[in-house]
């Protein structure tokens, strides 16, 4: 996963909101193009101006994540810019046997197994999923964030309940490599 966040320029900050939004959206599209992998997620927030672009994992190596702290403060130093730590991301693979792949929540929110109430769940235990396939939703502040399988596998367990509040990095679904049987 790769995240790029852009500090707002002072000039844009004081222009009209619609200009700012247009500029931010334009920047997001531009950023989306520079990744060699398929675009995975674009998140634009206008207040405080953040653009986050995520490419699929395969492109990650080519674009080391860079983070700019747009909001400095006196007492807690966020030295910026500086490279993101490897340890910051969900561990993904279970350390014990290396075969279980945990799909964890990328944010605080509410986990949903299906696109809407009453609809069929994205996945059930036993299903085989492709890398990049949607397996659920985490809703945060009314935004539906698709949860994608980072690699192919078979769904071994659905850990989080439908509609359950989840924390950052909380396991949602466990995959095991699909050996074809």
């Amino acid at each position: 996963m790769n995240v790029e966040e852009v500090p707002e320029p002072g000039a844009a900050r004081r222009s009209r909101p619609e200009d700012l939004l247009a500029w931010v959206a334009g920047y997001a599209v531009e950023l989306g193009r520079v990744g060699s992998g398929p675009l995975r997620r674009v998140s634009v927030s206008c207040g405080g101006t953040t653009v986050e672009v995520e490419w699929s994992p395969r492109a990650a190596a080519a674009f080391p994540a860079v983070e700019f702290a747009a909001n400095g403060d006196g007492n807690h130093a966020a030295e910026a810019p500086r490279p993101e730590r490897n340890g910051g991301e969900p561990p993904g693979r279970d350390a014990a046997d290396g075969s279980r792949i945990v799909v964890a929540s990328p944010m605080v929110g509410t986990f949903y197994r299906a696109p809407e109430p009453g609809a069929a769940p994205y996945v059930e235990v036993g299903d085989v999923v492709e890398a990049g396939q949607q397996v659920g939703i985490v809703e945060a502040m009314k935004l539906m964030n698709p949860i994608l399988a980072e690699c192919a596998g078979r769904v071994a367990e659905i850990v989080a309940d439908d509609g359950a509040p989840v924390e950052y990095e909380q396991p949602l679904i466990v995959l095991v490599p699909d050996d074809g049987r």
Binding site: A69, N71, R85, E167, Y168, E169
Partner: peptide, 8 residues
């Protein structure tokens, strides 16, 4: 838990 170590 709200996020990784990076304050941002």
């Amino acid at each position: 838990q709200i996020g990784p170590p990076q304050p941002k």
